Computed example of a mutant assay.
Amino acid sequence: MSFEHSVCIVTGATSGIGRAVAEELASRGALLVLVGRDLSKGQSLVTALAARGTESIFVAVDLADRKAPALIQMQALERFGRIDVLVNNAGLLINGTALECTDADWDRVLDINLSAAFRLSREILPTFLKQGAGSIVNVASDWALMGAKGATAYCVSKAALAQLTRCMALDYSTQGIRVNAVCPSDTDTPMLDLAYEGDDREWKIQTLAASIPMARVARVEEVAKVVVFVASSDASFMTGALIPVDGGTSAQ
């Protein structure tokens, strides 16, 4: 499963699953376009990857900015001349039931988790069509496949991302473009700190683990390896798939 000379864009790349995906792709020879909001963290990641022999650039943008997709693609093409993989990983969780979710909360979560992935995919698709090849992997959630309490906007955004995945996969299935989604359950990332109030992180992890058949939360590298497999040519007959990485949660 080599990505030698493949150019891969990863959003939300400076922490959590996004960083693990970037590191896994780097270990397999990819050239990386890393996207995030924090320039300092981005530059640190570029430096760390360079020390391992990986060439990468960091594009500091807020994906809510409608100009962000064009900037990301422009910098990718100027530096590397092509794009082979897009990983839409950036995401936002704001807790709240329907009564607790404000218009601002709803708009922000839907914009980052769904619309930003749509806009960036729409920007990159003509390049994939010109090349006759390309792979998009959307990082959704097990909550795209089932309901959950207290996170209405997040669940809706991830379910819609799953449907976006299916629709794009069907639209471009005969043109060399594959579109899939990976659906992780609770994973040991900074976002996990938002799952419950309070500062006792170990208690949070144990509480979440109790609801998972495998009795633990996922490690970021476990999710990243699935994302990278789905993005790779080893998954050449997979498109429109929603792949749970959830310790058995969706099997219940």
Results as ranks from 00 to 15, higher is better:
R178A: 07
S185D: 12
W106E: 10
S232Q: 03
A13Y: 03
A98R: 00
D84C: 00
V223T: 11
D193G: 11
V137T: 12
L39T: 12
A169I: 12
L99T: 13
A104K: 13
T239K: 00
V109A: 09
T207A: 13
T165M: 02
K158L: 01
D84Q: 01
R66N: 14
G96P: 11
Y172A: 08
Y154G: 07
A26D: 11
L39G: 00
V137Y: 10
F229Y: 15
L49N: 06
P190L: 05
R28I: 03
D142C: 13
D246S: 09
N138G: 06
A76W: 04
D65I: 05
R79C: 02
V46E: 08
N113C: 10
P184W: 02
D103Q: 15
F229T: 07
G248I: 08
R66P: 09
E55I: 02
L77H: 04
D107G: 03
M168N: 08
M191Y: 03
G36A: 12
A116E: 02
K158I: 01
T14H: 04
R216N: 11
V245R: 05
S2L: 14
A90M: 06
P244G: 07
T127R: 08
D107Y: 08
L170D: 14
A50P: 00
N95I: 02
D84T: 00
L86C: 13
V217N: 04
G12H: 08
I212R: 07
C183Y: 07
A133P: 00
L194R: 15
T47C: 07
K67L: 15
A151K: 14
L92G: 00
I112S: 02
M238F: 14
I83A: 07
A116M: 01
E100N: 08
G16W: 05
A209R: 03
A76I: 01
G36V: 05
G81W: 13
T165V: 02
V226R: 01
G247I: 13
L114D: 09
V7A: 04
G16I: 02
D62E: 15
C8T: 02
V228M: 03
S56K: 06
L164D: 11
D186N: 10
V227H: 10
L31F: 10
V33R: 01
L86A: 12
T207M: 11
E4W: 03
Y172T: 08
R166Q: 15
A48P: 01
K149F: 13
E100C: 01
G150K: 12
R108I: 06
E222L: 10
L93F: 10
L86W: 13
D111A: 05
A231P: 11
A169P: 12
E55A: 11
S157I: 04
V61D: 03
A133E: 09
D199H: 04
V245Q: 08
S233M: 02
W106A: 06
K149G: 14
H5N: 15
D103K: 13
T102M: 12
L194H: 13
A104V: 13
V59S: 05
L63W: 09
T239A: 05
V230E: 08
P126R: 07
A209P: 07
A116S: 15
V87F: 07
V223M: 08
R166P: 09
N89T: 06
I136G: 04
A144Y: 06
R66I: 11
G29F: 06
G240V: 06
A116Q: 03
A140K: 05
S15C: 05
